[in-house]
Design a protein around this nucleic acid. Sequence first.
DNA 1: CCTGCTTGATTAATCGTTCAAGCAAGGGGG
DNA 2: CCCCCTTGCTTGAACGATTAATCAAGCAGG
Lengths: 325, 325
Amino acid sequence: MVSIKKIARDIGVSTATVSNALTGKGRVSEAMVARIRARAEELGYRPSVAARALKTGQTGILGLVMPDLTNPLFPRIAQTLSLAAETRQLGILIADSRGSADEQGEALRRLVGRGVDGLLVVPQKGTTPDPMPVPMAIINTASDPTNSVSADHAGGGALIARHIADIGHRKVVILGGDRVSEVQRDRIAGMTRALRDDMGHRVCWGEVGVAQAVAEVQAGATAIMTTSDLIALQVRSELMRAQISVPGQVSLTGFDDMSFAPIMHPALTTVAQDVDEIAHRAIEILTARIAGTPSDREGQTVPMRLVLRQSTSIPTHPAQRRSIP
Amino acid sequence: MVSIKKIARDIGVSTATVSNALTGKGRVSEAMVARIRARAEELGYRPSVAARALKTGQTGILGLVMPDLTNPLFPRIAQTLSLAAETRQLGILIADSRGSADEQGEALRRLVGRGVDGLLVVPQKGTTPDPMPVPMAIINTASDPTNSVSADHAGGGALIARHIADIGHRKVVILGGDRVSEVQRDRIAGMTRALRDDMGHRVCWGEVGVAQAVAEVQAGATAIMTTSDLIALQVRSELMRAQISVPGQVSLTGFDDMSFAPIMHPALTTVAQDVDEIAHRAIEILTARIAGTPSDREGQTVPMRLVLRQSTSIPTHPAQRRSIP
DNA sequence: CCTGCTTGATTAATCGTTCAAGCAAGGGGG
DNA sequence: CCCCCTTGCTTGAACGATTAATCAAGCAGG
């Protein structure tokens, strides 16, 4: 491997000068900088990250901890995050917190042990990660005060509920996956808040909730709003079994615009996160914290976007409709 | 931060002795090892990875390059890989090759620049990654000779085709997503090989292939075998539009057993990769190569597993069935 | 009693980079 | 003419670990 020393010997200067020339820090003449740069290029010099890390205490690596990568949304975040990090010359070391809060803490400690400069955390449902001796950025749990950046889950819920209200639904079911999820609670809070006064709703949760929702439909509800596309897909399956058509007899909505949402039948009306924006902000906030200059965009939420597709429509029977002004 | 030096001073020995005691390398008395270990524990000593990397040239970090993390299968591999790496005290630095082969090369070079000890690569469709100056393990393109470990895609295709044959189908459609994908070609090769002599089949590709497949069904085909659950979901949607029932009028199969496969309607018959096994072998092979002791399991494929669900059944009309012995 | 081996520790160099401090030379102001 | 400032480069000491070489002491065998 070619080091700074080799270049120094080649040109006949000290290693300090080479270092200065390459990093642009000390005082080096224009001409010398050019010569050194050229030779470095020629030799294909790559600075040793290890040596630099040892000396400066900065590794240029961020740790990323995610809960259970099987949720198809997280990879998208990971991908964008890695892209955003890359433009800042940072690397991303991954770890996943596999279900438990303990594992999450363990993963964080491991990453710190590896000398990461900062941590990006998408917390386990219903947990707040322990503070660590390096800067952290917490992603995606809007209502948590320690949060750094998040989609506006409540706003997204409101968007979809308003849509459902606008097209005339009166009796609706809201279906969540897991009560402990801060994110899902936020979404549901947004939904209920946006419902109109002349509307009725019921909130159901989890596996049993799916059956309850179907029962509600049979009892006259005309829309089911879920907190995840995954749940919506499952509901779709149950509705089919019960011979209930979508959107003919009931409108159905998801959340997150996952990969299969546009290709299922009917294509799912849902709400999308601006994953790009969230990832970029997370990196921005974290690098700012590392540099010691807190960003002013901390804690702000990123708006969500309504994606209208074919799974929602106005209620078939006029009797079931709201009177729209 | 507490260093080896601090421990040495505390106990009154040289840093070399501490290093030896902690790594178990040189000659240190039992008693001394115990004292040093204890003190290190007490102080919460963590070796500096940077210093160690600088001296030894090994970072304990593996690079992982994946094509487009939005394919829901890859995250599962990433997750298992990170778990497997962890048990060997290794970290995983991610990068994704976002569509292009150029990006893939770029990602590899970046990771090498960061000093990774080895590279895990799930290659971009139809590409073979450039050789790099560190050991590599190539994952998941069975028919490629540079491959290190892969699911037995052809075997998986054979499994599903045999199932379709066994339940009596005679005229079938095979539907692939992208011709350049080595993996998909392997799967299809496996399928066609496993078809019986008295069966007829047609292979279609891509977006237009979906429509062609539906047309084939209208012309008498009773089964559609796809090379991905994602494609199957899309086909399901088109079939619905054409008022063709699954599995009543046509049997449908996917590939990879993605998250939504069990919850779509009807639940999808598909073939699953043993992601765990693949990930573990990849790590094993790579660490062996790094250590300079090539593993004997290189190049072996990992069997796939048939997952029978509700999207396949025997053809409704006896006239369309094969006569099964 | 001397020699040679083993045990348990030390010394000192080294990995590649950064950075504060120092130093020589040239130029301008008084 | 002397002094000081600036410019451009060098010196040398870190950073925290590893490791080959060395050494002192104890012990056994001849």
